[in-house]
Write a protein that binds this DNA or RNA. Structure first.
Lengths: 127, 127
DNA sequence: ACAACTGTACTACCAGAATAACACAGTTCT
DNA sequence: AGAACTGTGTTATTCTGGTAGTACAGTTGT
């Protein structure tokens, strides 16, 4: 069963996209195994205190991308080939880091300064 | 006059927030000088192909934060003390990097791997 | 068979983001 | 004074995200 304990809801981005990203990150990192069970729409929505429709939207879009399998009445499961995982990992890291680097450069931070800060934050948040 | 040539409109976040962030980043980096002139609402909205009301919202909120001065009929200017700039720089870098580090850790990237990628992207986007 | 789950679908409603089209008043420059 | 800008305010409309509630059909376990 996929664990959503580490899920942090942030502002400025739709919740259904955050749920999708959380699952994709787990797949890319390998913390979510192929064929692992997904919480039901109702259970996850209650845990995250969001509307069932919001979770349903995330699951439906993931299914359209071929990362989730659902059958009416039965539980839902993730499914991802090795190739899909690798593609996700590349895509997610690249996208996020590229945007971040653009912002850091605009803020006048050098690569060295950025790396130093990141190193500190890596240690800081290791609790 | 503040240059918006480097402005990149992305999805998932309101445009007025992106405009605000762009100006804040410039202030934090020092690429925007104190007292520098802002493009008029109409001119900037035309350049970004968005609605004048969207730009107005960004400018109005920035004025409420004390970073912009506007007088009816006259041009608008940015204003920021040394303290405000420093606070912005800390706030913007911290916030962005903290979220990024959380995601990278969740993706299973070590600090070293993240730094290596960032170094590469820094070189890559230096055109 | 029955109860308790599951996914799926639908309608209605509300808030915010963004667009569109104005109107009005103050400033600046010639 | 007049033209051309400027900021400001208003109203209406559209779209999306999210909530709320309900209904129905398939699956599972007892």
């Amino acid at each position: 069963m996929i664990d959503f304990a580490g899920f942090v809801q942030t502002e400025g981005q739709p919740i259904y996209l955050q749920i999708m990203r959380y699952i994709k990150q787990g797949l890319a990192a390998g913390t979510i195994a192929d064929g692992e069970e997904l919480s039901s729409r109702r259970a996850l929505s209650a845990f995250l205190t969001v509307n069932p429709n919001t979770v349903q939207k995330a699951y439906r879009l993931l299914e359209e991308e071929g990362l989730v399998q659902s059958h009416a009445g039965a539980k839902s499961f993730v499914c991802a080939t090795r190739e899909q995982r690798d593609a996700l990992r590349r895509e997610l890291t690249e996208n996020e880091l590229r945007g971040m680097v653009r912002d850091m450069k605009r803020m006048g931070l050098t690569a060295a300064e950025a790396m130093s800060l990141i190193g500190k934050l890596y240690e800081e948040e290791s609790e």
